[in-house]
Each structure stands twice: as structure tokens, then as C-alpha cells.
Amino acid sequence: MPSRKLFMHPSARILKCLIIISCLALLIVRFYAAKADDRALKKVTFLPQWLPQAQFAGYYVAYERGFYKKYGIDLTIIPGGPERSPADFLKKRQADFSTLWLSAGIQMRAQGVKVINIAQMMQRSGLMLVAKKSKGIERLEDINGKKVGLWGPIFQIQPQAFFKKYHLNVEVIRQSRSINLFLRDGVDVASAMWYNEYHTILDSGLNPDELTTFFFQDHGLNFPEDGIYTLEETFNRDPDLCKTFVRASMEGWRYAFEHPEETIAIVMKNLEIAHIPATRVHQKWMLERMKDLICPVDVHVPMGTLLSEDYDRVAKCLRENGLIKQIPKFTSFNRCCNRYDEKK
């Protein structure tokens, strides 16, 4: 039974509580210790929304290379995963910063949680649908009437809008984290992240020419994904902290793209620490795709910029689908911290 971390024995729960308590105790002690020293680094916590894979290479590289320390930040990266919801961690102030998809951020804001986007790292959506040509799916209309695997609510916004747009009637099957249901032909079409599951499919023996792919970004549904979020109050309390965090993170990303080998070594180390099976080639693929998705299409747009048209496209789609009632004001949602260099 693949119980793993989701499915813990009661004794493990007690153990977990103990760890959290002791961590909190430690934090309190260190907080006071830090207060005693004027020059002390600012203690900051950060939660990437998923496993410590190359999707978050920039942050791990910035951490390993000491970029955060350089800007006076004593960062703790909380390992992300399915059991840690970034929204909850932000809301409950268990993390100062987190990454979120733009759609998730807008939804939170619309639901009254005062989160703000301080950098939109990914400019393009890596979400896609994949189908096997052997199942007779070569064109868009071939999807009609097929079994389509979709992930949880946030991953369904684009596909549902896609089906609506092209009048496709499909049988939605809830897709788990694994791509095996698709590989075994349990579904005809699967959801995939370009930088992750798509490569897993390739590394399970299917060739690109045997697959039909539908990138949402090619169908007017470019929902930029990972961005850096914090609570508005955190920003108001210490805007400099937000700016330096973004600055260090972007330095980390640039460094990662320029030093892929070192970056992959760092990623692999973190995956190993987290006991997550990993392969170098997969992480390499992911880092390369992150570069494709993060680097702005328009070279004049600085890295990490949230474009208002992207915001409008995502927000409108969310409202049309009844996921939000009102579109939050762009200016209240976005506090772009990526131009720190120029401002200073």
C-alpha cells in the first residue's frame, strides 16, 4: 500500500507534534537571541509549493550559494509537498513567503486572504494535456468523448476552459500524482506539467512522436504559474525584506540557469535528503523547461514581472467559471519587487 507520508501511524503523529513543538521552542529562543543582536540576520521562512525539485532550483541555489545571507536573510526553506498547503502556511503565518500559482493567488485574494504577489517567476504555463496517438488522438477534436485525467481544482481551471472553448465533451477522471493510469491506458488523455510528468512519460518508454500534446498556453489559456507570495501585512511591515528576498531569489535563478550542473547537484542533494526518488536527467529536463517558462518572452520585460494582461486573463477566467465573484484590483494584488536594483 503506498501509504507513505500521507498515511501515518498514530505514534508518528505524536512524533511529528513533538518535532513541531521543539522547533517552535527553538524558534522562540532564537528569536530572542536574535533580538539581542542588532546586526542579526532577519529570520525568514519560505515554503515552495511542491517537492524540492528543479522547479524550485533558483531558491535552493540561492540558499546554497548564500545569496539570502548576503542580503541579511536567515532563510529556512520548509520542504514542500502534498501535505503542506502554501495557502494554509501563509494564512497561519507558518511561512513568511511561499510560491503559488497565479490562479491560486488571485483566488486567495478574492476570498479575502490579503496575499500579494511580489514576483511572478513563471511567465508561461507549463500545464498541458498528453494523449497517445495509438489511442487515436491526433487532433484536438479527437479528445471528444474520451477519458481525461485531471488533477485537483486549481489544475482543472485551464482544462475546463479549454473543453468549453472547443466544445469538447469528456469523461473526467480524477488523476493522482502518478502518471501510471495514463501509461496503463486507464485514461486516454492525461494532465501533465511540461517540465515534470511529460518527461516522466518519455522516461517510461514513450517517444515524443507517439504522443499528441496540447499546451494551454497555445490555446489562449496561458496562466502563468509559480509566483512568490506573502501577506500584505508582511510587506507593509518590512518592504525591504520582501525586495531583498525576491532579489536574492532571482539571483539564484540566474545563477541556476548559468550553472546547470552545479544546480542539478544541489537539487539532487535536497531530493536525497527528502528521500524522494530522483534522476539527474529528469531534474536536468525540469531545469531546462523552467528556464523556458521563467525567462520572459519579451526581452524588455525584467524577470519576475507580473504582466497586467496575464493577470486579467487569469482573473476573468476565474470569474467566468464562478471561482471568484470579483476580480481583485491588480495594483492591490501586485507589489512588484523585481526592480529592486533600479529603485535602490
Binding site: 500500500m1 503506498p2 477519458k147 480524477r174 488523476q175 493522482s176 501510471n180 493510469l181 486507464g186
Partner: peptide
């Protein structure tokens, strides 16, 4: 947990 969406449940179910 919601075991319905796990491979061990979903694959035999769908196939």
C-alpha cells in the same frame, strides 16, 4: 485518505 485516486485502486477500477 481518499484512496480512490491511487494507482492501486484507480488502475484496476478503470481497466
Amino acid at each position: 485518505y481518499e484512496y480512490f485516486y491511487w494507482d492501486w485502486y484507480q488502475i484496476p477500477k478503470e481497466l
